[in-house]
Amino acid sequence: MKVERSHWHIFILMIGVFGILNTEMGVIGILPLIADHFQVSIAEAGMVVSLFALAVAISGPTMPLLFSRVNRKTTMLLVLGVFIACNLVSAWTTSFTILLIARVISAFFHPIYVSMAFTVAAASVGKEEAPKAVSKIFIGVSAGMVLGVPVTSVIAASTSLEIAMLFFAAVNAVVFIATMLFIPSMPVRETLSYRAQISILKKSMIWLSIAAVIFMNGAVFGVYSYLAEYLETITKMSWNTISLMLLIYGAANMIGNVAAGKLLTQHAYRTVAAFPLALGAVFIILFFVGPFAVPMGLIVLLWGILAGIGANINQYWITSAAPEAPEFANGIFLTSANLGTTVGATVCGLLISSIGLQYVVLGGIVFLICSTVSIFLRSSMHKSTEQPL
């Protein structure tokens, strides 16, 4: 009975994370409508995405830390309530400035719920099964990033921008009610002082883990950020086909999430060490088969699976370096992942400007080499100190 309850709680958390990520990423599909509705340029409309991501990166280590000693159910309800309120304001406001403020406010609370979802999922099962539980939360992350864009776009096209915004609030409201009714009170019984949690930053292992995550995420998203342009320019695909490719990539992400849970449970270090090599091989093949549609379709599928596995690896690699402070570690993971995405997209963008779009994979390969060095150094430290990987 306890196992069934934990599965039910993880499912609610998974939908909750979907709602949070859907709020963050879903607006990408309606940026032209936002620009038209608020009479701003498309570049200005893009601020609803960029400022949200910046706020998440800033609040990643701090907000989960501040709420780490508060009852987890209370914290979840607070965050969901903030998201509901901010989404309602976003749907009904006529001021673009107020829209941005509402988005930024909700973004600051984003890391609290997501980091707590990872922590609660891992704590609800035995230590050996924790990676599998966390992988289910990542399904919600992937679904929010992948399904949020097309679903919101369809809703907006068939109804209105306001209804699309209200969809975000509706998902959060459903999770709020489910949390209130079915999630028990979860007081934090083993509390660590803020100083004790922050002290994990004194560990060399945590900084090597942060570096590895920045490089791994930089490799994945540095190249992925330009995938649509690559498929259009190099592979000569139509926009309908490109949309299908992006959907395949996203669905493959969810397959990777499921696979990662099993791999990290059974062969954690081997999985982490093999990831840069596997993704590097994909990038090398991509470079040579770029102009050919069918091989590119297969590469996108494999790349998507590896990216889903990589997301789980990133979270595992940081939290396993600081198991004594899970919420703070998960917050650090969120910030590291966002920094990796930003740095990767920037570096690969500069590479494209310098030597051409087809060479974007070189940026990803360089990041993967750096991640391999970081992983090796942490492994060497583990062998000398006998700390857990």
Results as ranks from 00 to 15, higher is better:
F215V: 01
V174T: 09
A228Q: 13
I214H: 02
A156H: 09
P187F: 09
V149Q: 01
K132Q: 12
Y224D: 01
V175Q: 02
Y230W: 06
F215C: 13
S142W: 06
F221Q: 02
A156K: 11
T159W: 10
I214Q: 01
V213F: 11
K202G: 12
A211W: 09
I210W: 03
L181G: 08
F167W: 14
F167C: 05
I137G: 00
S153V: 07
G148Y: 02
G140N: 10
Q197Y: 09
S225L: 01
G222R: 00
W207C: 09
Y226G: 01
R189S: 08
V213H: 10
V213C: 12
Y230P: 00
L181F: 12
A173M: 13
I177E: 05
F221L: 11
M186C: 08
S209D: 04
A164S: 08
I200M: 14
A169L: 11
K236P: 05
S153H: 07
G144T: 11
V220M: 14
V213N: 08
S209F: 02
A156Q: 12
I214C: 05
P184N: 09
I234D: 07
L208Y: 12
V220Q: 09
F138Y: 13
K136N: 09
S193E: 04
A156I: 12
E162I: 02
E229K: 15
